[in-house]
Design a protein around this nucleic acid. Structure first.
Lengths: 143, 143
DNA sequence: CATAAAAAGGATAAGAATGTCTTTTAATCT
DNA sequence: AGATTAAAAGACATTCTTATCCTTTTTATG
């Protein structure tokens, strides 16, 4: 449903949401241990997100990744689309060709409702929504 | 959420549910084209299911795979457990260590409800339930 | 301008999932 | 009994995801 990479990416963005701003950028080096994702791998993912405008980054000394106010309005789905591509999330649960809401296979009908719900959540939850009322990273990453 | 292998396995079992019985066993050769799964790969999956008692099989001439009356009482989850293992389905959506219903991460709370629902469906839908009222394989495998 | 800091990018390795092929075992039929 | 048929088993190949490494580019600062 969600690839590991997408999960990692979400974790990273969550960290940025809680710990960064336009004038407080953070380096991958400061993030990866907290969110339990390999440093180089996380870097790749954040770069990809930055390239697609989901998060922001600045090179050089005093540089790093951060979320602008606008970035925070992005949804979880925006992240997932960049990392996994649209196809993966929207494809039929059973991977049946040409199975969709109009012409659903039996299993699709069965689990379809839940699936759409899941996608709904991804599409309608922004970063801001997620961190609303939360202060510490620990709340997001137990252990 | 569900591996390809599990999906294939479910398709295969569904075919058996519709087309086999104690005295009408079917060979992989007759199944794989209909359900769009590579022959050798499907064979492997069915063998695995048979080994674990989820479906039945007999070797040699007039042999093949089939579902006994008892087999039909198995749930989708029984299939998934054999192919994917229990861990995969039950693990935290975010893959966070020690995240569970008691100590859920933020995302878990968010999508947890849908996830449990999905698992519910798997656990409470038997093969019999699935084919109830269905005659043709085409209903299950459009295209 | 030199230097250091940091992301960006490319190449490649490691591993898991997926898929194929060959041999073995068991059942049936002549 | 012997030949044939079909699943069982296991070795092998391929592809995709995940992960690492190393070099290049950019930028701030002394």
């Amino acid at each position: 449903m969600l690839s590991n990479s997408s999960k990692y990416a979400i974790k990273g963005v969550l960290y940025l949401a809680l710990n960064s701003s336009e004038d407080h950028k953070v380096m991958v080096r400061d993030i990866f241990e907290v969110v339990h994702v390999p440093e180089a791998y996380l870097a790749k993912l954040l770069q990809e997100l930055s390239r697609h405008g989901v998060i922001s980054s600045v090179r050089g000394p005093k540089g790093g990744f951060y979320l602008s106010e606008d970035d925070r309005k992005h949804t979880l789905m925006d992240i997932v689309k960049v990392i996994d591509g649209e196809k993966r999330v929207n494809s039929c649960v059973m991977g049946i060709r040409d199975c969709n809401m109009n012409n659903p296979c039996v299993l699709h009908k069965l689990v379809g409702a839940n699936k759409s719900k899941f996608i709904d959540v991804l599409e309608n939850t922004t970063i801001l929504d997620l961190i609303d009322g939360k202060q510490s990273v620990e709340e997001f990453f137990p252990l």
